[in-house]
Simulated scan of single mutants.
Amino acid sequence: MGRKRIAGLAALTALAALAAGAAGCTVQPAGAEGERGSPVHIDVPSRTPTAPVSRPPDDADRPSPAAPPSTRQAPRVLWSPGDSGRDIRELQARLRQVAWIFHGPTGTYDELTEQAVRGFQGKRGLPRTGVTDSATWQRLLAMTKEPGRWELYLMGGQPADAPDARCRTGRVLCISKSSRTLRWMIDGRTVSTMPVRFGSEYTPTREGVFSVYWKSRHHVSTLYDSPMPYAMFFSGGQAVHFSADFAARGYGGASHGCVNVRDEEAIARLYEQVRSGDKVVVHW
């Protein structure tokens, strides 16, 4: 090959090398023995990944605002101190069943009832308010039974039965063992009504039609040596009279056959109105 041709090839090779270097590639040289050079590798530099462009989230991307925590509704108040009526009697009767109250039922939400409710609530992990709310009432219902008539009226105050037919004429002390009440009646009209207590099964109060044969304002029993104020005798030693024991214990006790009245003011008024000879009817 002529020198001019060799020089031309060398120049072309140099130009190719410059062009390859400008493109960022490396060219592996041929071996010393004049072997074919290794293939040309193009080393492309890697790009550093860029962080995604931040943008305000669309409405669909925004999380829903957190809902406020649900507030537990306070139990509804049913009864509170000062209330009265049949419902309060049932509350007191049920509290008696679980030994949280020992008086009554009186039908009045008094201080002792408030204390009993507070104690019951505290024992069951309920707020100690002393007020009967729906939560307290449901817990009490689950632990007790429906009180009967006698339980509701242990201290008296129960509605009187309809008057016996023998009570509808004249002046009559109409006494019902079934409702445990005494009606003072004149010519079929009820003047007053009061709760009463009777004798035990061993000393029962006699039933029938009698009349008041003796009145003794400050009487003391000669048989039992116990006071019998406002006594109105109608059958042997049996009389209608005030009983301090009945006023204190209610139907937890019994008389020795007399008809006990627990309201001293009521029997004091009755004593002034009743005359000797007035009729007495004791019935179921």
Score class of each variant (00 low, 15 high):
Ala7Val: 15
Gly8Thr: 12
Leu12His: 13
Thr13Trp: 08
Ala14Lys: 03
Ala23Gln: 11
Gly31Arg: 15
Gly34Asp: 08
Pro39Val: 02
Val40His: 07
Val40Ile: 15
His41Gln: 11
His41Pro: 06
Ile42Leu: 14
Pro52Lys: 03
Arg55Val: 13
Asp61Ala: 15
Arg62Tyr: 11
Ser84Gly: 04
Glu90Ala: 11
Gln97Gly: 07
Phe102Tyr: 10
His103Leu: 14
Gly104His: 03
Thr113Gln: 04
Thr113Gly: 03
Lys123Cys: 06
Arg128Ile: 02
Thr129Arg: 07
Thr132Asn: 01
Thr144Asn: 02
Thr144Leu: 01
Pro147Met: 02
Trp150Ile: 09
Glu151Cys: 03
Leu152Glu: 04
Ala165Thr: 11
Arg166Gln: 03
Cys167Glu: 00
Cys167Thr: 01
Ser176Cys: 08
Ser179Gln: 08
Arg180Asn: 02
Arg183Ser: 10
Val196Ser: 00
Arg197Gln: 13
Phe198His: 00
Thr203His: 15
Trp214Phe: 09
His218Leu: 11
Ser226Gln: 02
Met232Ser: 02
Ala239Met: 08
Ala239Gly: 06
Ala239Gln: 05
His241Asp: 04
His241Gln: 05
Asp245Thr: 08
Tyr251Ala: 04
Cys258Ile: 06
Asn260Gln: 03
Glu264Ile: 15
Ala266Asp: 08
Gln273Pro: 07
Gln273His: 12
